[in-house]
């Protein structure tokens, strides 16, 4: 996987965890889970974001603001953000070294 994509996936996972903890913290604490490490997790997200190329991070932020999720999985050759068809050529070996974007909605594509 493209190393920048790997970091973007990790960042999106962590940022979703932070958002969910902020939204559902009481529910999680009701189940017995501690959320004491929330600030540490935010710091981890900031550090990870610092490892991402500025142009990629800016693009990720723009998409997150617009769609909620910037990186989306491709399932059955479909972008799961807008359900546009993704050409088979997108998964060719030559494309493994660059970020792939949906030609229809612009979201960053990820093959799980």
């Amino acid at each position: 996987m493209h190393p920048q994509l790997q970091k973007l996936v990790a960042l999106q996972d962590i940022e979703q965890m932070i958002a969910e903890t902020q939204d559902q913290g009481k529910e999680l604490e009701g189940m017995g889970f501690s959320i004491a490490g929330l600030e540490a997790l935010k710091e981890k997200a900031t550090k990870l974001a610092g490892e991402i190329e500025v142009r990629n991070l800016n693009y990720y932020r723009r998409l997150t603001g617009r769609f909620g999720h910037a990186v989306v999985p491709v399932v059955d050759n479909l972008c799961t953000g807008c359900f546009a068809n993704i050409p088979a050529s997108f998964v060719s070996a030559t494309n493994e070294n660059k970020l792939q974007k949906c030609e229809s909605c612009g979201r960053i594509l990820y093959w799980p």
């Binding site: 996972d13 017995g32 004491a36 981890k44």
Partner: peptide, 23 residues
């Protein structure tokens, strides 16, 4: 990352590692 938020070993002798991922 989830364990950094707080240990998921919350039940007596039981842990619930969990989370969401694109993977």
């Amino acid at each position: 990352s989830r364990e950094a938020l707080g240990s998921t070993a919350v039940g007596p002798g039981v842990a619930f590692p969990h989370g969401r991922t694109l993977a």
